[in-house]
Simulated assay, not measured.
Amino acid sequence: MAQARIPGIRVAGVSTCVPARRIDNLAEGERYGADEVRKVVSMAGVRQRHVVDEGTTAADLCRDAAERLLTRLGWERDSVTGLLFVTQSPDYFLPSTACVLHAWLGLSDRCAAFDLGLGCSGYPYGLYVAAAMLRAGGHQRILMLHGETPSRFTDPADHATTLLFGDAGSATALETGDDEAAFCLHTDGAGREGLIIRGGAFRDRHPADPRHLALEMDGAAIFNFTIKRVPPLVADTLALAGKSVDDVDQYVFHQSNRFIMKHLAKKCGLPEARVPMTIEDTANCGGPSVAVTLTRMLDSTHDRTVMLLGYGVGLSWGSALLPIRAGTPLLHGELAALEASA
């Protein structure tokens, strides 16, 4: 089992960014049918989605989040020795989008930069890699960026996906410190077809069926996977960290679906007040939804212990349990339409 307790780290700040463009799902009744739209709003909980304009990418959202965070922290660019970009919405097949972001952010050539190809579970996985790099030595400060633009790979004719997903980017700053994080990470690749884009990459570069260039989702399979896998993940993470349910101030779930999250909270015995949700007005924006919920809902005026939970495409699921110290910057903002980044 992939479990680890990693000491000697500290979350210095988190920043998130969503597009300024908003779409009200209830206004989509003529397009998808009023009954279907109401069903998505009432069950999944998505009333409003933030969606990028053509030409805006996950990297643009993460760049904005990172710039605001670096400015707030006052970090010198040369002090950042690691840059991770977690995404399944890259700007290019090659080079790694992390290299593009490295240039945009003006980081030193002594900074390691690379992409991690993960989606819904990406936030805890990215934190794990960053924490492990800090613990291994040679790094003092790392930026972990996690961004997705699911709106760019949904089929507009498929209301089950189009009405569910929004876009977001995040930047998390980690450095050496006195805190410890506990991680549990899992994979079940046999379930990979539950969420998949079949075409466009090198398995099927130019699919005969253009629908294979869009996201396909087996909703029932993903629901069953989540209900089966996430409750043991919560229990295992608490056991690894030596904590009880009441020791954790907030359980921040990937904002997959309101009905699913409420079901999970009940099954795990979690107080509803400790399970914040942002899905109503920022939709399911993939893995970055964990960071978006953290920045929008966590009160950082006092020390808080949080469990961060990601689960979905892969199939992949993971957790991170760690402290967020009082005064830690938690920033959230919107990105206006912008010219394509050079």
Rank of each mutant, 00 (worst) to 15 (best):
A2D: 12
Q3I: 09
Q3K: 14
A4Y: 00
G8C: 10
R10E: 11
R10M: 05
G13S: 06
S15R: 07
T16V: 09
V18W: 00
A27D: 15
E28D: 05
E30D: 15
E30K: 14
R31S: 04
D35V: 14
V40I: 14
V41I: 03
V46W: 06
R47V: 00
Q48T: 13
R49H: 04
D60A: 09
C62F: 00
D64L: 11
E67Y: 00
L73E: 06
W75I: 08
D78E: 15
L84C: 04
H102R: 13
W104S: 12
W104G: 04
G106V: 10
F114A: 12
S121A: 15
Y123H: 05
L127T: 02
V129P: 02
A130R: 01
L134R: 06
H139L: 14
H139W: 06
I142G: 09
H146R: 04
G147D: 11
P156R: 09
F165D: 02
A173F: 01
L174D: 10
L174N: 11
E175K: 06
E175L: 05
T176P: 00
G177L: 04
F183H: 06
D188S: 10
A190D: 14
A190C: 08
E193T: 15
L195A: 07
L195V: 15
I197D: 02
D204W: 04
R211E: 14
L215Q: 03
D218L: 11
A220H: 10
I227A: 04
K228V: 02
V234I: 13
A235M: 05
A239E: 14
K243V: 10
S244A: 14
S244W: 00
D246Q: 15
V248M: 03
V252W: 01
V252F: 04
F253G: 08
H254L: 10
H263K: 15
H263Y: 09
L264T: 12
L270Q: 03
A273Q: 13
M277D: 12
C285V: 15
V290Y: 03
S300V: 14
H302M: 09
T305Q: 12
V313I: 12
L322K: 05
